[in-house]
Design a protein around this nucleic acid. Structure first.
Lengths: 215, 215
DNA sequence: CGAGTTACGCTACGACCCGTAGCGAAAGAG
DNA sequence: CTCTTTCGCTACGGGTCGTAGCGTAACTCG
């Protein structure tokens, strides 16, 4: 069992032969997203992606070992556009990032692919790690940034100094991340209702004031 | 295009011939869950389920049109065990249901199947409706019940009378449901960390007091 | 420029799964 | 007993999988 040679992001530096075409890379990932929109995850096939991208099926397998990894990479780039503009207050910042993430999840290619690869990752540790580094970490930094800003504004208490304070802060960030991302995903995919401004406001109010504040 | 004949839950009353074996039904659903644990969603095949259940493949297709619908039914029964014991206070009630739902999602057959069928439901409206009636509604009633109890205890403000109050209450229940279920799902499947008593307590504290209460 | 190395397209392949059809036998309803 | 439906079995065409082999294209290095 030799380690795999392929894997798109790392064409292995110091090569000497013909380099891989980045244009081909892009064409494949674009075709993957387009196919996801049209046929969904279950009926997506490597053959169809190859045809849509105008590429030989063997070229696909030289870069990605299977459908899961290909789709993770195809969807991961969509998460690069997430940002946290400073809107001047914690609640406004939360609503902003909620709306951004909601809009991202509303796109059919994201919606249909994200849960599918997450489901596969429950029986594939390598895939889970790939998802974590390619997707999850890109979101988590937004929580960290928003929390720091709120602490500087005095809207949230500062971290307790020392190692136990750092642990508590880390746990808090993990909790907040799961709550925000989880709620948006659940509303979009399970409840199948939109993440609009009204919902974002209601949700951020719940986060800031607790259940009693909902009226 | 004649309407399908199969579909397990409705063998169509008033029949005259040989009835379907409920024992066969149970064997198939059991085999489906067992196979999910072993091979996961992606590599689960109808053929393997048939072999495990000791049943002909054609018998499977007489009852379920495809893998998605079979798995939904196989997993749905697991949600019947969810309850909301009265622990005397809102926070304790929340922690109880969070731990129950967390334990349910920790089971590998639930974990690997739930997200997969949700992903498929994004391109299959019939499947989404099946999931809603078979799984989602079973959880939502817990939120309704817990909210009523808390209002009777005076822990939450009562509903505003009139139609606009009912609308607000309905929205609040939907929001709370998405937040609780979403957070648990996200922590279990994406963050891949356990839903234990400590987390349940931290989470319920966040829900009751807001972000500032986390310390 | 030439030699070496790698990527690419193409074809073909065995293996597997899909979903259906057709048959005879089994099991209940009336 | 008769009618009806289920069930197991076999067989089938169609599709996808992932790989191998080959000739060619593209780039690097000496």
């Amino acid at each position: 069992m030799v380690a795999r040679m392929h894997r798109s992001p790392c064409p292995r530096k110091g090569r000497t032969g013909r380099p891989r075409s980045v244009e081909t890379d892009r064409a494949i990932l674009d075709a993957t997203r387009a196919a996801l929109v049209d046929v969904g995850w279950g009926k997506l096939t490597m053959s169809e992606v190859a045809v849509r991208a105008g590429v030989a099926k063997t070229t696909l397998y030289r870069r990605w070992a299977n459908k899961n990894e290909l789709v993770v990479d195809a969807v991961a780039v969509l998460f690069d556009e997430l940002e946290l503009p400073d809107r001047g207050g914690l609640q406004a910042d939360i609503e902003g990032v909620v709306l951004q993430f909601g809009a991202l999840l509303a796109r059919p290619e994201t919606k249909t692919a994200l849960m599918a690869v997450v489901a596969e990752s429950t029986t594939d540790d390598a895939l889970r790690e790939r998802i974590r580094s390619a997707i999850v970490d890109r979101q988590k930094r937004l929580v960290l940034l928003g929390r720091e800003r709120a602490q500087q504004r005095g809207e949230l208490p500062p971290d307790t100094p020392g190692p136990e304070g750092a642990l508590a802060a880390s746990q808090a960030v993990g909790l907040i991340f799961d709550v925000i991302a989880g709620a948006i995903v659940h509303r979009t995919l399970v409840s199948a209702e939109p993440v609009d401004a009204a919902w974002a406001h209601q949700f951020s109010t719940l986060l800031l004031t607790g259940l009693g504040g909902l009226g």
